[in-house]
């Protein structure tokens, strides 16, 4: 019985992974198309990212040793693992384990693995890129934490499934209505998490030769692409669950995710790149202010929990 259950979970997990990867790649392709149309170009086909990924996995590459290999595999694997705990629409693979902070920390493992891989390549450009990415992370995680904690306090639960369940019953129950400031902060944070302009310092192509990815080619770059696509799905998915009330089915879930991502793409299309310390301090100003303000409002509303 246990084995059957395990196999069912395994196949479901593969399904979720494939679906999330496909969605992330499709979003990437649509974003390229949108960007092209904003710049009055025709743009690549929607499926371009799938072709790119396929090509990358079938292309030769260089490796700088086992730490490089291990790091880059560890760079996308925890993202897929974290995905298993995310409530996607009505479906959750492990309903009793969808703790939000746990998901966030699993995502950190992916960053740790990616950092280990690219730094093992021994290129200073990747080290500079990594240092920028980490500094940016020190920026955006702080307002994100403020918002997560206010949701914890507001919902009195840490399970994403329960947070979603609390928002059922119409638009007015969504957290976006109840905590608009927090949502605003998180939407800005999403821009930084996805590394879109003005927060794309880490992968500045002309400046530090695409930063962390400088030595990656072929399948390694493909792993980076998988990581980015899954992270895109995961991060927008978390925000949908937190603020947009989840979804009754998968398609509405994706639609809500796309709305979030669409805003990110539009902002990406019109803004230039900030310097890294400006970006970090920006996150410590406006989004953190919004997040803290939201937290204060929530605490004043909710009072003190009885411990």
């Amino acid at each position: 019985m246990v084995i059957v259950e395990f196999l069912i979970k395994l196949s479901q997990g593969f399904g979720i992974g494939a679906l999330a990867l496909a969605t992330g790649l499709l979003f990437g392709g649509i974003a390229r198309k949108i960007m092209a149309r904003i710049q009055r170009r025709y743009g690549p086909p929607f499926t371009q990212n799938f072709m790119d990924l396929f090509k990358l996995l079938s292309k030769g590459s260089v490796s700088h040793g086992w730490a490089f290999d291990l790091g880059l595999v560890a760079g996308f694997v925890p993202m897929l693992a974290a995905l298993m705990f995310l409530p996607i629409g009505p479906f959750t693979l492990f309903p009793s384990d969808s703790s939000l902070i746990m998901i966030v920390y699993l995502m950190m493992m992916a960053y740790l693995g990616m950092a280990m891989g690219v730094l093992a390549s021994g290129n200073p450009n990747s080290a500079i890129g990594m240092s920028r990415a980490l500094m940016l992370m020190a920026g955006y995680e702080v307002p994100f934490a403020a918002v997560i904690f206010s949701i914890y306090f507001f919902s009195k639960t840490g399970y994403l499934t329960q947070i979603v369940a609390m928002q059922s019953g119409g638009f007015m129950n969504w957290n976006i209505v109840k905590m608009p400031l927090g949502f605003l902060a998180v939407e800005i944070v999403l821009q930084g998490m996805l590394g879109e302009k003005p927060f794309d310092q880490a992968i500045a192509p002309a400046e530090i030769a695409s930063g962390p990815m400088v030595e990656l080619g072929g399948k390694y770059l493909g792993f980076g692409m998988i990581q980015h696509s899954v992270a895109l799905f995961l991060e927008t998915g978390i925000i949908v669950d937190l603020f947009l009330g989840g979804a009754p089915n998968f398609w509405i879930f994706i639609a809500k995710q796309f709305v979030l991502y669409f805003v990110v793409v539009l902002v990406d299309a019109i803004l230039p790149r900030l310097r890294v310390h400006e970006a970090t301090s920006f996150f410590w100003k406006l989004p953190l202010f919004l997040g803290i303000l939201q937290a204060v409002i929530v605490i004043i509303q909710g009072g003190v929990l009885n411990v």
């Binding site: 390229r32 710049q39 743009g43 690549p44 371009q48 790119d52 002309a206 695409s210 400088v214 770059l221």
Partner: peptide
């Protein structure tokens, strides 16, 4: 860029020879 747009053929400029 927008006049001829080579990205529609899937061709994108890259930063390093590895990629």
């Amino acid at each position: 860029t927008s006049r001829w747009d080579m990205e529609r053929f899937g061709i994108t400029p890259m930063a390093t020879p590895r990629q």
